[in-house]
Nucleic acid binder design. Structure first.
Lengths: 229, 229
DNA sequence: TATTTTTGTTAGTCTAATCTAACTTAATAT
DNA sequence: ATATTAAGTTAGATTAGACTAACAAAAATA
């Protein structure tokens, strides 16, 4: 006799749990610590609720919890969080690059789709996007194992005349800023040569692609992250 | 003073409620009636739970509920259900046609994505798919208002020699059957002419596209729905 | 028609996830 | 150093959504 075992939908962590993990991940300071209060504010959930959830996540070995001490994700917790962020960022990229959404439209949708349980779906997005390492904000996309590769970027504004750099990421993306980048044909991966820096206002004159002399304001250069080449 | 009103996420019906509505819709008989028992079995949820949910859906005017009488969706309930089915079918089609999934892989994923709250996402899928009226099973896709257009189909097996018909839908799709159709270049929308019907076993000889003489078994003809042209 | 079976309901329990009120510990400021 | 404020916890209530056990109504059958 065969016993039927239903494994339709094996959700390891609930939707609520996933949201706590993700928020903790993004709020962690350099020591990996988070305050109950900050978490409470971020999630718009009252502190006692947060405390009780932390106790639960601790029994699941996702969080180190000790009364009155700062919260910390365990390695397991970090990995789970990174995998959710992976799904979020892949979704955002997919919506923008493959479905024609505007960048400002996709966050809300990705907030929901990041909870979908289907490794195949996200593997397919990854494939169709060409296995990107960074999303259009320049934030790293964790890999299938939840590993996030952080590259040490420099701001373009910190480079000096004569440097040749690769455009790798963008800080504090706004729809307007992305439109500006588009209008100047500035895209991630682009090689840019710094021709001169105006000492008065830190404006840079750069060349790239077919554009041999473009001027970028300091405000713009502060928001562009580059790798030296 | 401005009062902040958060309307981040206005989920009208919970995930559980949506699943009840969808199940009721698909179990409804010609009178639009469903039994508590059948619903309970379909959802794998015990009858008392179903009863109590029905009372809740009744207060939300989604279900007509009277003790010991068959359940019925209200018009409002039917509409909500149809909209979920719309999302499910658009998702399945999108996964197959735009992302390269196999038909057998997409149901599970669509079961989750159908609950995503984002009219924009599904409008975009609809657009990218060219506003399809039928999914690859030949099931109708409800429109944005939850209206489902049912076309009166005939089985191919019920047609006679000399008829020319348009292939419009498929009954009881299995991965194997769809593979078979692919291998013979039989696709929805295709015009097929019936050359002869073998009276012994009801096998049909048909021509279509570049194939001037293909033989289709009765089993296959029983599963192909057509419109006369 | 009377009995049995199936279907549906009621009552009460449980867990997840939220809340408020009251209390405790830690941090800040006088 | 003490008083005040901020941060964190405990206790207890609430709602959604599930369950089991027991009962009631309707349908099927003898």
């Amino acid at each position: 006799m065969i016993t039927k075992i239903n494994v339709y939908f094996c959700r390891v962590n609930s939707l609520a749990e996933e949201n706590y993990l993700k928020a903790m991940f993004s709020l962690s300071n350099d020591k990996g610590e988070v305050n109950v209060n900050d978490l409470s504010k971020r999630l718009e959930i009252k502190m006692p609720t947060v405390t009780s959830m932390m106790k639960r996540l601790a029994t699941k070995k996702l969080v180190h919890y000790e009364s009155y001490k700062p919260l910390k994700l365990t390695d397991k917790g970090k990995k789970e969080a990174a995998l959710i962020i992976r799904k979020h960022r892949l979704t955002e990229m997919f919506l923008v690059e493959k479905m024609g959404f505007g960048w400002e439209q996709v966050h809300e949708i990705a907030e929901q789709i990041e909870h979908i349980q289907s490794p195949e779906l996200f593997a397919k997005m990854d494939e169709l996007l060409g296995f990107p390492k960074l999303d259009p904000h320049g934030s790293p996309i964790p890999d299938k194992n939840g590993t996030m590769v952080w590259v040490a970027y420099n701001k373009l504004s910190e480079c000096k005349a004569g440097d040749t750099v690769k455009l790798s990421a963008v800080i504090n993306t706004s729809a307007e800023f992305l439109k500006f980048l588009n209008s100047r044909e500035l895209s991630l991966g682009l090689k840019v040569k710094i021709k001169s820096v105006e000492p008065f206002d830190n404006t840079m004159v750069v060349s790239y692609g077919k554009r041999l002399s473009e001027t970028l304001s300091h405000t713009v250069c502060e928001r562009l992250l580059v790798e030296k080449v």
